[in-house]
């Protein structure tokens, strides 16, 4: 049983693509492993979809006014699209990482993200994923059987998603699928008996990116 879940606010933000990539991958991977959160996510998506795509409020901009002017453009677009053939479904194959003679199948959310090299020190191995944003760092962390990490605090927030195996610290025992957020006030010294693979985001950007279009403005001006 998975005992540690992302907060609802994180799930809601994930459903609307409002989280930075490193965090949204963590929430997506958790939901793949956790039927409870998956179900909640699907309900939220149904609700948000209905709000976004069927509420009359969302099409009241200038769409009525330019309907006639754009008629030709739209019909060209429709003709172009309908000239395309159907696309077939490519079967999903999970990415596999190998470390310390073990193979791990990764959740789909990690697809194409895990082709980098491990750096190993004793029983601890880390693979940086190329999805860092601002000051946050995302990696896969592997602790081999019998390994531990000396007690440490966190300069900032740390998010850990346990992907396989188990580990314990002063607070809890964790198992695959657990989604753990520790802030800078928590010190801990995790250790594992059988070994574990985690996805970690240090200085986890738990803030949401609601103002994303504001952020885009300067870039937008530069490009356009």
């Amino acid at each position: 049983m998975i005992k540690h879940h992302p907060q609802q606010a994180l799930l809601d933000a994930h459903a609307q693509a409002q989280l930075p990539l490193s965090m949204t991958i963590a929430v997506a991977a958790h939901c793949e492993m956790c039927p409870t959160c998956q179900q909640y996510l699907e309900q939220r998506q149904d609700y948000i979809a209905a709000q976004t795509l069927t509420s009359a409020d969302n099409c009241t901009d200038d769409s009525n006014g330019d309907e006639i002017d754009l008629q030709d453009d739209w019909s060209t677009m429709i003709d172009d699209i309908t000239a395309l053939p159907p696309e077939e479904l490519a079967p999903f194959k999970p990415d596999i990482v190998e470390i310390k003679q073990r193979n791990y199948h990764l959740p789909r959310a990690f697809k194409h993200r895990v082709s980098r090299d491990w750096s190993t020190l004793g029983k601890i191995s880390r693979m940086r994923l190329g999805i860092d944003e601002n000051d946050s760092r995302a990696s896969l962390l592997h602790i081999d059987a019998g390994g531990d990490i000396p007690e440490h605090g966190h300069g900032a927030q740390e998010m850990t998603l346990l992907l396989a195996g188990e580990f314990s610290d002063e607070y809890n025992q964790y198992q695959a699928g657990d989604f753990i957020v520790l802030d800078k006030n928590h010190k801990h010294s995790p250790s594992t008996i059988e070994g574990c693979l985690c996805y970690t985001v240090v200085d986890a950007p738990l803030h949401f990116t609601k103002g994303i279009s504001k952020l885009l403005n300067p870039i937008g001006k530069l490009i356009y």
């Binding site: 693509a17 699907e42 998506q45 948000i48 979809a49 395309l84 053939p85």
Partner: peptide, 28 residues
Amino acid sequence: MQNIWTKSHLYNGDKGAVTTWVYTIMRN
């Protein structure tokens, strides 16, 4: 809209409403 045209045969009404499917495509 292009995704809707080329992937419509992959839509499964048992798994969710059309609006959810379209929202997912649009958001992605």
